[in-house]
Design a protein around this nucleic acid. Structure first.
Lengths: 171, 171
DNA sequence: ATTTGACAGTTCAATTTTAGAACTATACAA
DNA sequence: TTGTATAGTTCTAAAATTGAACTGTCAAAT
């Protein structure tokens, strides 16, 4: 698969993956949320090759996730800062962190704690339903084709089921 | 960087990325949540090469995200199903979908709608603070080193700031 | 009895990506 | 004049991915 095809798929998840779904991009975004803004900053924080960093930044700018803003003339220098579209990635970042906090910590505990300014407490992010406010879990959610779903004859991505048709003598 | 080093970093996000942070893995997980369970199912749904699919499934099993369960003897066949650790990835999936729904839809609208069984409404996922229940945004959150943070002399991942030290004549 | 098809992989050559390191260019500061 | 900081670009070697074919087991159809 060519990865730019992902953005054409009738699946919001695939499209998102097309934009931010690779390791370096995700790490670059982590740095963005930690207020890294400059080429050298990203490079030294991540140890990414300069070549790839240049590519990824270019792509994020093209996608409207980052904006490239001059902070000095002669020599021209730019900073990369998150747009609103980029800031909206925050729930994804937090979800990634939280899963790591839950399933990937060693005996010493979490590397980082998060404090919510509004209430002053250390918190975990919780994903809830916008309508009733209850926490969400996979089995309580059903999907329906939306207006942008692919029309009938073709396969509707994100809406097919591999029915476990058991054959022959079961184990 | 070798990608297995990611899991050693004192950063929950990096560790998570080490497990699920590549395109194919993310797409495989999407299929899992859509109840695909078998090798051929994944392969035909995604068009991934069989070689890579076998590798990725193996890794997800090794990481405890999927469990490989026999569903038939002779010939031995297995299904890949999400463990609890895997099911806990749901907020990440929903966050990815929601960002795509917000920023990557075309004029036709969303490919999919989500219904919350409990309340019966179509919903969006919202990430809130576990302590006060308010929706979260990047700027209302402060990070602090936790017990598993890297000790002083070395760089604490996820806790450095590239202070925009302005030099020379600004633009 | 033989062929066909489903399933779950494995193997291998060709292509694409990434890593690692060095190099370019501009301009300030000592 | 030399050194440093910044933001890249260029190059070759190494690693990952693709595409396609191949393996092996068994059930069902001919």
């Amino acid at each position: 698969m060519k990865w730019d095809e992902l953005e054409e798929e009738p699946c919001s998840m695939a499209r998102t993956i097309g934009v931010i779904g690779d390791r370096w991009t995700l790490l670059i975004l982590r740095e963005c949320f930690l207020r890294t803004r400059r080429f050298e900053g990203f490079q030294s924080a991540l140890g990414i090759t300069r070549h790839l960093l240049a590519e990824r930044l270019k792509k994020l700018v093209r996608q409207g996730v980052l904006r490239r803003i001059p902070y000095q003339e002669s020599p021209k220098r730019h900073e990369y800062i998150l747009t609103q579209k980029g800031l909206d990635l925050y729930p994804i970042m937090m979800a990634l962190v939280h899963w790591g906090d839950t399933h990937m910590v060693d005996e010493r505990g979490r590397p980082l704690l998060h404090e919510h300014r509004k209430c002053g407490k250390m918190f975990d992010p919780v994903m809830v339903c916008s309508e009733c406010g209850e926490p969400l879990s996979a089995k309580e959610v059903h999907v329906h084709p939306g207006p942008g779903a692919r029309p009938a004859p073709e396969r509707v991505l994100l809406d097919k089921k591999a029915k476990p048709k058991p054959r022959r003598k079961a184990a």
